[in-house]
């Protein structure tokens, strides 16, 4: 764990004009870039329309009247605030450190970047770190000072302990009363069935769920050649001496099946699944994701 959070706000500057667009519009009261289904008279001008009888006179654009000698009503897109909950998996398996750093660090970067981005857009961001139980939970807030708190919480978190995602997600789903955006950063090394039920719980609470499936390239490719003793990062004393070359095919079959199952489960639960490899730059990964979201808007 580095002493300071390696979070470079400038790296996100280029994404400042990008909009994190929720697949479904979420109502909120903080003005942001999220489009509200209700057009109103808030901050951002949307369009002019002809004045009809019954419209309030205060909405008439007198400047346009002065130029055109016609009555136009100014319409604004009403920006809503977004409550985003960042759930960061801090279990022992996230501590795996391949060539490109640990998965937990990678999750930290993503969480910090998203926090900054969201707060920059005046969305409320909350944070929950956990292993088998919740380590720390920060309720969502949208003020600029909140970023520092989130970042401090991320920085102070040390990964460790066993993974127990599904019960914990159920617990959090119960706690998040108001619907919002739940961003999950985890390797999800757990049985897919319980995970699916937990995700469905979020969706039942009408949360938009983004699942960043964070994996190290080594976990995907299993490139080891020499005899290797794999020591469990979560359960002390659990180790296995294997010839990786002999085991690779079976491992990859197991792993691919797990990923496919998880992806399918996310599809079933209408959860945005995104595989994040730790060898991909964080900003690039976010960019790809946000661009993709924007295209789907």
């Amino acid at each position: 764990m580095p002493s300071t959070l390696q979070f470079d706000p400038t790296s996100l500057a280029k994404y400042g004009r990008l909009a994190l667009v929720a697949r479904n519009a979420v109502e909120g009261f903080l003005t942001g870039v999220h489009k509200s289904p209700y057009k109103g008279f808030s901050v951002e001008f949307a369009e002019h329309r002809q004045y009809y009888h019954g419209d309030e006179i205060r909405h008439i654009d007198w400047r346009a009247f002065g130029k055109t000698d016609r009555y136009y009503i100014k319409e604004y897109e009403e920006e809503t605030n977004l409550k985003a909950h960042l759930l960061v998996d801090a279990s022992g398996s996230m501590k795996y450190q391949g060539k490109h750093g640990s998965k937990f660090h990678y999750a930290q970067y993503i969480a910090a970047s998203l926090s900054y981005l969201m707060l920059h857009q005046r969305d409320a961001v909350g944070l929950a770190t956990h292993d088998t139980k919740i380590r720390q939970i920060i309720p969502p807030k949208a003020n600029s000072k909140h970023l520092l708190r989130v970042l401090n919480a991320l920085q102070e978190t040390e990964p460790g302990g066993e993974t127990g995602l599904a019960p914990l997600w159920h617990q959090l789903a119960g706690q998040f009363k108001r619907r919002g955006l739940v961003v999950i950063l985890s390797d999800c090394f757990e049985e897919v069935g319980p995970l699916l039920r937990a995700l469905r719980h979020f969706r039942f609470r009408r949360h938009e769920v983004l699942l960043f499936h964070i994996l190290a390239p080594e976990e995907i490719d299993f490139p080891f050649k020499k005899w290797t003793q794999f020591r469990d990062l979560e359960i002390s004393g659990n180790k296995m001496l294997v010839d990786p070359q002999r085991l690779r095919r079976d491992y990859q079959q197991n792993f691919q099946k797990f990923c496919n199952d998880l992806r399918n489960a996310c599809g079933q639960a209408q959860v945005d699944y995104h595989l994040m490899r730790t060898d991909e730059p964080v900003d690039k990964a976010l960019g790809i994701y946000l661009t993709k979201r924007q295209r789907r808007r």
């Binding site: 794999f230 020591r231 491992y251 197991n254």
Partner: peptide, 15 residues
């Protein structure tokens, strides 16, 4: 003469 790796995805090594 084996290497030691701290590993998270232990369940996938189970064959």
């Amino acid at each position: 003469r084996y290497e030691i790796i701290d590993w998270g995805a232990m369940q996938f090594l189970q064959i």
